[in-house]
């Protein structure tokens, strides 16, 4: 099984650093995940020098085959291939992944100014759509996570906004 880890358009040093630790990788291995792709963004970590010009690097550690790079124009393909997506708690990524639908663990980025990632993550966790974690408890959350308990995310419904605009225009 395959895991995709993404941190968005900025940097998330602590999450990327922990993704390369034996502790994290062995928790994945225990749950049957043997391949991992990491989108690193501009994070600084032990191998960031190896990908700074847009390269893709591979590495094998704790029985997990790892591929990592900085950015891609679209992550749609990576979401599709993944059996589990681990991500920062950006709202765009959350909407994209839950609508696939794919099981998801989000880690709010505590270094972001005006941090509202936390409130979105915990609210959606309360509703049962995803699992929220911190960098520290991520290996535990992976161990305990059972994707079969996910509450399905409601599909996109464009009629609500269309109705608002129709009201504004005086059509209804």
């Amino acid at each position: 099984m395959h895991v995709f880890l993404t941190i968005g358009s900025t940097r998330f040093d602590s999450l990327i650093a922990s993704a390369f630790t034996e502790l994290f990788l062995s928790s994945l291995r225990k749950k049957g995940y043997s391949t991992l792709v990491i989108q690193c963004g501009n994070s600084a970590f032990e191998f960031s020098g190896d990908i700074q010009n847009g390269e893709t690097q591979t590495l094998s550690r704790a029985g997990v085959e790892i591929e990592f790079w900085k950015f891609k124009p679209s992550l749609q393909e990576d979401y599709e291939k993944a059996d589990l997506v681990i991500s920062h708690a950006g709202s765009g990524t959350i909407l994209d992944v839950l609508r696939m639908p794919k099981p998801m663990i989000v880690v709010p980025n505590p270094t972001l100014l005006d941090n509202h990632q936390e409130e979105l993550a915990s609210t959606l966790e309360e509703m049962g759509h995803l699992k929220a974690a911190t960098v520290e408890n991520l290996p535990n959350v992976i161990n305990e996570y059972d994707p079969s308990n996910i509450v399905p995310f409601p599909p996109f419904d464009g009629s609500r906004f269309a109705r608002i605009i129709d009201e504004v225009m005086g059509f209804i």
Binding site: G90, S91, L95, D114, H116, Q117, E119, L120, T123, F161, I164, I165, V168
Partner: peptide, 25 residues
């Protein structure tokens, strides 16, 4: 028409607070 982002669950964003008095909807 101002639509607050899906990311804001409990409070308005800065732009939301700024635009609110001026938005027709």
């Amino acid at each position: 028409v101002f639509v607050e982002t899906f990311a804001r669950v409990n409070s308005l964003s800065l732009s939301g607070k700024l635009v609110r008095p001026f938005a027709d909807r």
